[in-house]
């Protein structure tokens, strides 16, 4: 009977430890099994991604509809190729939708925002979003502002 209690307690301990690993995987690192199945991938070319990272959100009207899966530099087009996985529920995006890189707050994380177009054709798996808007780089903005004030003075 004592050995049985001991076995029970040790079994519970090991179960709790393994459960902790599952929590770390699913809740903390967001590793959801099978989530890759019900998405479709689209890609877009940006002149400047400036701080966008893989796993960043893809949103529409502020609601998350997908994730950025990969970002790489395309050496033939001299621009950044961003691969995105969009939930397959959202299968009515017009083919001429616009993808822009936005910032949450002044210094917050970067994410991709998609604004709806007017085409009858819809984006399918593997298609490209042609209409893109690059990230706003604060230094360029300040530089342009300074240039404006200088030219006004002259």
């Amino acid at each position: 009977m004592r050995t049985r209690n001991l076995e029970l307690v040790v079994g519970v301990f090991i179960l709790v430890g393994l459960l902790a690993l599952v929590v770390l995987a699913v809740r903390i690192s967001g590793l959801a099994p099978g989530s890759a199945v019900n998405t479709y991938s689209v890609h877009a070319y940006f002149d400047n991604v400036a701080g966008l990272t893989a796993k960043a959100k893809v949103t529409m009207s502020g609601v998350t509809i997908g994730r950025v899966t990969a970002i790489e530099f395309d050496k033939t087009r001299y621009s950044a190729r961003v691969d995105m996985a969009v939930d397959s529920d959202v299968n009515t995006l017009p083919a001429d939708s616009t993808a822009s890189i936005l910032t949450a707050g002044l210094l917050g994380e970067k994410y991709v925002g998609i604004s709806v177009g007017g085409d009858d054709e819809v984006l399918a798996d593997g298609s490209e979003i042609y209409d893109t808007q690059s990230a706003l780089v604060l230094e360029e903005l300040i530089g342009r502002f300074l240039l404006n004030t200088v030219s006004k003075d002259e």
């Binding site: 690993l21 770390l24 809740r27 903390i28 690192s29 967001g30 796993k55 959100k57 994380e109």
Partner: peptide, 19 residues
């Protein structure tokens, strides 16, 4: 709190290396 955490924590790079 939770979504920032899930965006930045990688299962293989962070969790498994810790293990």
């Amino acid at each position: 709190y939770w979504s920032n955490m899930q965006n930045s924590v990688e299962f293989f790079d962070d969790v498994l290396n810790g293990v």
